[in-house]
């Protein structure tokens, strides 16, 4: 009986902890958003973050996208050959990439790269008093540090995903034509035939949401980190893990909103 109560109490504590963490992330996000529209603005910092997040993530996202497109073509070909549906390969590739793999893989790659970097940078600034120093120098740290990262990631992720979409389809095309011996023109025609605007748009909406999540979790964890280098390390891990879980969760929710009827 008492073991059962202990178990229930432990579960209760866990749930309570999760809820209160979710609450404080939400409050942090709301505060940050309220600063997005109020001056002063820091266009210089925004540009720098866009460069940091976008340009430097390009190689990782590009490679991931190309190989995903290639493996999708190969897998769906060998799978579909069992019921003579090889013709659907191009369509499967383009739909999977634009709706799912483009945004999700780009999101996860950027979460690992940028989410961690943001948490480490802000965490270091927190434990070395640089965030407090901003306040004493008449600068709001949310405006100066958090807003540029949130806005930059939200704008840049969709741009990265457009590139990922193109490269993913290209990867499928390369395998389709060079290895599976599809006719190039037919393959391209099949790619376009069933693609709808909504497929691409839903992917880009996902990308924007994922970008926001990545920057939010990085900033939140970094901003609240404590306890020296070890604390910063923990913040970095938490930022990546929580962003990844939230990305997969919101991926389902957004898919449901767009396509379930």
């Amino acid at each position: 009986m008492s073991a059962l109560l202990d178990l229930l109490a432990a579960i209760g504590r866990g749930v309570f902890g999760l809820l209160s963490a979710a609450g404080s992330v939400a409050v942090f996000a709301a505060v940050a958003l309220s600063h997005v529209v109020r001056p002063p603005f820091y266009p210089r910092l925004l540009a720098r973050q866009m460069m940091e997040i976008g340009y430097f993530s390009l190689p990782v996202v590009a490679l991931t996208a190309i190989f995903s497109g290639m493996v999708l073509a190969l897998q769906s070909y060998t799978g579909f050959a069992r019921f003579s549906a090889e013709g659907a390969v191009a369509t499967v590739v383009v739909l999977s990439i634009t709706r799912e793999l483009g945004p999700v893989l780009a999101g996860l790659m950027v979460a690992g790269r940028i989410g961690a970097a943001i948490a480490a940078e802000l965490g270091t600034m927190r434990v070395t008093d640089q965030i407090d120093a901003l306040t004493t120098l008449s600068t709001n740290p949310i405006k100066y540090l958090v807003v540029p990262r949130l806005v930059a990631a939200t704008i840049v992720l969709p741009l990265l995903v457009i590139i990922a979409d193109i490269l993913g389809v290209l990867g499928g095309f390369i395998v389709g034509v060079a290895k599976l011996e599809f006719n190039p023109a037919t393959y391209m025609q099949r790619t376009w035939e069933f693609l709808e605007v909504q497929d691409v748009v839903s992917g880009l909406v996902k990308a924007a949401v994922f970008g926001f999540i990545i920057a939010l979790m990085g900033c939140y964890q970094g901003y609240h980190s404590r306890g020296g280098a070890q604390g910063v390390g923990a913040a970095t891990t938490n930022a990546v893990v929580s962003a990844s879980i939230l990305i997969l969760t919101f991926n389902y929710v957004i898919t449901e909103l767009f396509f379930a009827r």
Binding site: T128, D129, D132
Partner: peptide
């Protein structure tokens, strides 16, 4: 600040 807290 104690550790300087310069913006690196």
């Amino acid at each position: 600040f104690q550790q300087g807290a310069l913006f690196d």
